[in-house]
Design a protein around this nucleic acid. Structure first.
Lengths: 167, 167
DNA sequence: TCCATTTAAATCGTGCACGATTGTTTAGTA
DNA sequence: TACTAAACAATCGTGCACGATTTAAATGGA
């Protein structure tokens, strides 16, 4: 309760009052960067008929198929409540098929259609376009960013896995 | 069509075929990290009656008020279509007030209520809690992450500003 | 064999995000 | 002054995200 003994006398930086804002900045930076990235992809993915999350799902399937809804969710960090409607839209768009696994009727198997397969090429071009439009960060910076993000995500996943299943 | 002259000889890593996936990984990493951060905040913000985007809006108002909807949107990188309903919820929750600017009836001024002000303390504790649960990244890594993200965001904002207003 | 438990996906309700449009108000200009 | 253009917020429709719940199938004992 007495965590705020930095009673407003912290006028050192003039615009934040004793609050450890640095971490918030990082969280907000992640939030902002994520949103801006999605915005960067939007116009490139629109001609393909995909949103960014749909593009992620397709990438996962291009890497490996068939997959179950749960398996895909684990890779993307999303649950069935998010994925089921998204996958139905991909199915409606003719990119994938969804069918119950005969061996285990609880599972739903996701498969690429020919149309879904054919999007691999254009998707490569999208990646190239993104690279072109990418802000001028050096290879070292990009690498460092990627490395630290991986570490951060690993840590966050760990924390996340502990919280829900308290018991 | 012939943009893929990296003709599949990239079997170095065995599981990606000529696609420049590195950048995608970074985009996906940003997407994942952002989502995981939000999840980390959720249980801490819930007792306060705030979501993470609402918390961001409140932070902006704690730093400076009154603000217009547009002004807040510029800071957060969101438009009125997102903010208006969010702000109405904050108003319904008794955290802020919204009123037309008498000097310019187009603007809507956002002000903190006493209740909104009183949340500053608990919000500090949230920031502390986040820091505690934060994955074990060294201060150097956190700093590097923050610095590169800032650079990335600046670049993305620049690109973003150019795209919509073509012509 | 039967039944409780677990697992998998779907569903529901709420909230965020954004492109496009609409309705006002203000500013600019002939 | 009148009339167009710009600025600002709100609204609408679509899609993502998630907690909580529901339904159905598989599993593991007693």
């Amino acid at each position: 309760m007495n965590t705020k003994q930095t009673d407003d006398t912290t006028q050192a930086s003039a615009d934040f009052a004793g609050v450890p804002k640095l971490d918030d900045q990082i969280c907000f930076a992640l939030y902002s960067a994520s949103g801006l990235m999605t915005r960067l992809y939007r116009p490139l993915l629109e001609p393909l008929g995909l949103t960014y999350p749909q593009y992620l799902a397709m990438m996962a399937l291009w890497e490996r198929a068939p997959r179950t809804v749960g398996g895909l969710g684990e890779v993307l960090g999303l649950d069935s409540a998010t994925l089921t409607p998204l996958l139905k839209r991909l199915e409606a768009g003719g990119f994938i098929t969804r069918r119950r696994d005969a061996a285990d009727e609880r599972r739903v198997l996701l498969e690429l259609t020919a149309k879904g397969q054919s999007l691999r090429g254009p998707a490569k071009d999208v990646a190239v376009q993104i690279l072109c439009q990418f802000p001028r960060l050096s290879a070292v910076e990009l690498d460092g960013l990627h490395r630290i993000l991986a570490k951060l995500i690993a840590g966050l996943r760990e924390t996340d896995a502990k919280a829900p299943a308290a018991d």
